[in-house]
C-alpha cells in the first residue's frame, strides 16, 4: 500500500449513504443546503427543555395561563413562540397530589421537539418504550423516582398525531418566586414524567 498517504479514508457505509442521498436530492432541487444548516443549528442549539420549562413556570405563576394550557396546549404553548414540527398537537397533563403522569412513545420516539428539544437516547430505546407501559412504577424506581402507592400513575403514549407534556407540581417552599427563578427548577425529566422538579433547597 505505497499510496496510503495519498487518499482520504472513506467513512462507513451508512455515512456514505446519507451523503449520497443528500447530494442526489440537492441536485434535484429538493434540498436547500442553507435550510439544512439552519435546521441542524436549530435542533443542536436552539430548541431544548428550557422552552418547556418556561411553559411550566408560567403555568405555575399565572392561573389564567395554566387554564389555557390545560384546555388547549398547542395554542397556549404557541403563545410563547414555541411551535413547529412535532409540536403541532400538544396535550398537557397535570400532576396532582393524586396523580403522577409519565409520557412515552411506544411505537418510536414521538416527542414534543419545540418544547423539549430532541429526546434523550433512553427515551428512544426499546427497553423504556416497552417497559414503562407494563411496569410504570418499577421503571420510575429505576430513575430513582418513588411514587407513593397511594398515587395513581398514568402513562401517556405520544404519537404522530399528538404529544404529551407533563405539568409537574410546583415545589413547596417557592412562594413568591418569580417565573424566571422557577424556570431553573424545571428539569427535562420532570416534563417527561420520569423525574420531579428540583427542590428549592437543592439550588
Amino acid at each position: 500500500m505505497a499510496h496510503d498517504h495519498n487518499h482520504t479514508a472513506p467513512p462507513n457505509e451508512i455515512e456514505l449513504r446519507v451523503k449520497a442521498l443528500e447530494s442526489l436530492l440537492t441536485e434535484k432541487g429538493l434540498i436547500d443546503p442553507d435550510a439544512m444548516n439552519e435546521l441542524i443549528d436549530t435542533y443542536e442549539h436552539r430548541v431544548g427543555p428550557r422552552n418547556g420549562a418556561k411553559v411550566v413556570a408560567k403555568a405555575w405563576t399565572d392561573p389564567a395561563y395554566k387554564a389555557r394550557l390545560l384546555a388547549d396546549g398547542t395554542q397556549a404553548i404557541a403563545e410563547l413562540g414555541y411551535s413547529g414540527v412535532q409540536g403541532e398537537d400538544m396535550v398537557v397533563v397535570e400532576n396532582t397530589p393524586d396523580v403522577h403522569n409519565v409520557t412515552v412513545c411506544t411505537l418510536c420516539s414521538c416527542y414534543p421537539w419545540p418544547t423539549l428539544g430532541l429526546p434523550p437516547s433512553w427515551y428512544k430505546a426499546a427497553p423504556y418504550r416497552s417497559r414503562v407501559v407494563i411496569d410504570p412504577r418499577g421503571v420510575l424506581e429505576e430513575f430513582g423516582l418513588t411514587i407513593a402507592e397511594s398515587k395513581e400513575i398514568r402513562v401517556w403514549d405520544s404519537s404522530a398525531e399528538l404529544r404529551y407534556l407533563v405539568l409537574p407540581e410546583r415545589p413547596e417552599g417557592t412562594d413568591g418566586w418569580s417565573e424566571e427563578q422557577l424556570v431553573d427548577l424545571v428539569t427535562r425529566d420532570s416534563m417527561i414524567g420520569t423525574g420531579l422538579p428540583l427542590q428549592p433547597t437543592a439550588k
Binding site: 467513512p11 451508512i14 455515512e15 446519507v18 451523503k19 442521498l21 443528500e22 436530492l25 434540498i31 439544512m36 435546521l39 441542524i40 435542533y43 443542536e44 414540527v85 428539544g117 430532541l118 434523550p120 437516547s121 433512553w122 430513575f143 428539569t187 427535562r188 425529566d189 420520569t194 423525574g195
Partner: peptide, 21 residues
Amino acid sequence: FDTEEPVFDHPWQAQAFSLIV
C-alpha cells in the same frame, strides 16, 4: 438524567435528521 448530552453523536446523524424534517 439531566446532564446535557450532545443531540447528535455524528454529523451524519444531524444531516439525516434534518433531511427528513
